[in-house]
């Protein structure tokens, strides 16, 4: 074999190594978010939740929605929701009754993009909402005007939240379904606990209060408002922006992913090295080929 070919082969491995490590370095720095200020992300989250609050409601722990939004909400409801829930929100075989459902429930399903469904009859999954915050609140205003009941939208203020309290509550109440890293997992029979990586503080608080889908309900006597805020703070600060000081987080799915890496990159890479160092002897050809 000409020597330059051998040279290329020989340089291939170090080149691959360098490439791999640069890649991982870039990814890990990106994932660590060491260049992004963590605090700014949190503060935008807070501003969303308080954005709609009205002057008189500052003291209480709930978001009140101006009645003036009801007409706009009515129009939006007719456009987006009525095909399943009917014009009066009483529901049909396609969608449940919404009368008396409460602001938190409506806001959670709409703001997380689960509602409106992209087509009737499919499973509601989280997706970016195509409605603005104002439009969502308008729908909430309209639906809550149809009948009283249900929990209001909690007003979440993370300023004085205690993330340490939040961590311990999260580990006790949330990790058993959502995993301790918040990545979500499969429940029985094709239902899933959702990933918490894109939830806003308000959505977290709403979910705790209303228990959407298969999720249990955590009322104010189980988790008080402060505790809800602690959990929301822990999730938005440390689940969504984990301290991945050690490098790429592998999606936080645990040792199975780590095992694959150890086998593929660790052992696989070292086997390639051995392959380079050692001989690949071909079997001596028999001379009886004529």
């Amino acid at each position: 074999m000409p020597y330059h070919k051998k040279l290329i082969r020989m340089l291939l491995l170090p080149a691959l190594l360098v490439l791999l490590s640069t890649g991982f370095a870039v990814i890990s720095i990106y994932r660590n978010g060491s260049f992004a200020a963590r605090t700014s992300l949190v503060s935008t989250g807070t501003s969303v939740s308080t954005g709609a609050s009205q002057a008189g409601a500052e003291k209480s722990n709930t978001v009140s929605i101006p009645k003036s939004l009801i007409p706009e909400g009515h129009i939006l409801f007719i456009e987006n929701c009525s095909s399943c829930h009917t014009n009066t929100g009483e529901g049909s075989y396609r969608g449940p009754n919404l009368v008396g459902l409460g602001a938190a429930t409506v806001d959670f399903w709409v703001s997380t993009g689960r509602m409106p469904l992209s087509q009737p009859g499919i499973e509601a999954v989280q997706k970016p909402s195509r409605l603005t915050r104002q439009q969502t609140l308008a729908i909430v205003a309209y639906v809550t005007s149809l009948g009283k009941g249900g929990p209001p939208i909690p007003k979440v203020n993370l300023k004085h939240a205690n993330v340490s309290e939040g961590q311990t509550l999260f580990a006790l109440n949330c990790a058993s379904c959502h995993t301790i890293t918040g990545s979500g997992d499969a429940l029985s029979n094709r239902s899933f606990s959702s990933s918490l990586h894109i939830a806003s503080p308000t959505q977290i608080a709403e979910a705790l209060r209303i228990g959407p889908g298969n999720m249990p309900r955590f009322g104010p006597r189980t988790l008080n408002h402060k505790e809800v805020e602690d959990i929301a703070a822990y999730v938005t600060r440390f689940i969504q922006h984990p301290n991945n000081a050690g490098g790429v987080g592998l999606g936080g799915v645990g040792p199975v992913a780590e095992g694959f890496i150890a086998l593929l990159i660790g052992l696989g890479g070292l086997m390639l090295v051995s392959f380079w160092i050692g001989d690949r002897q071909e079997k001596e050809e028999s001379r009886d080929g004529h």
């Binding site: 370095a25 890990s28 301290n243 991945n244 050690g246 490098g247 790429v248 987080g249």
Partner: peptide, 9 residues
């Protein structure tokens, strides 16, 4: 691996 891939955080 120890540098770039987090294990058991």
């Amino acid at each position: 691996l120890g540098a770039f891939i987090q294990i058991n955080p």
